[in-house]
Design a protein around this nucleic acid. Sequence first.
DNA 1: CTGAGCACCTGAGGGC
DNA 2: TGCCCTCAGGTGCTCA
Length: 273
Amino acid sequence: MPELPEIETICRKLTPQLRNKKFSNITVYRSDLRVPIPQDLTITATKSQIQKIHRRSKYLLMDLANGLSLIFHLGMSGRLFFTDKKTPRNKHDHVYFDTEDGLHLRLRDPRRFGLLTTGATAQLFDHKLFKNLGCEPLSSEFNGRFLHTLCQKTQTAIKSLLMNAKYIVGIGNIYASEALFLSNLKPSRITQKITAEDAANLCDNIKSVLNRSIARGGTTFRDYVDSDGKPGLHQLELFVYGRGNQPCKKCHTPIKRVTQNNRSSFFCPQCQR
DNA sequence: CTGAGCACCTGAGGGC
DNA sequence: TGCCCTCAGGTGCTCA
């Protein structure tokens, strides 16, 4: 479900509510997510202060005072949200987190493509889940030259490259489609045919679409909500994603939907080349 | 090694 | 109402 802007939104919302607090109790109802939830989580992650909540790629991380970090991934259908403790349990509410001051957070994930595990904070980026991750698109390291070099040394469709986390993290199906539209590049354009100028432009558009979405609390295309149950607003600004057969907002040509790597790609056949 | 294809899992929505 | 199909914000394995 969520891409970088949605995880960033959740991260920013959780920080003021959880920082410097402790989980008094964690209850696991179902542990067989994509990566099984460790048996000892209910012991190791309680009674220790939450010092920092941050994001790497589409992972949400909570660093605890005891040197352990909680690692969350929401997959396609995951939600991390506060609710009343008395709210009846949905059958896909896999974990309950109670804080010492009475907050109640739940992890819900119907498809179970997400994960919740732990890792040593000091060696987090040597962790199996992180060690092969590429560049953060909102960092200064990610610039036009970096992207152009990447395009030169790979031979694939540009959209596949943008969505490949070993090169660039956090960009999923929505933002890849949107950034390519803003750059007038069709998703199937072969990377080696991307010029330095295209790459610089695409890089700027990736940053701006991600930043604009974060500013609007993310994109709610189907059912994304943040930790307060609020949907995002960026879907109001989508140019192509989910708009198959509808007129292009720039030139009125019908938007095309094609399948690429088993995922839908949307683009304007007139504006994007 | 690289890149494409598919599996993992559940639910929603449309057509008949 | 039900059945069968397609589709869904991700990732990682397998195969050529």
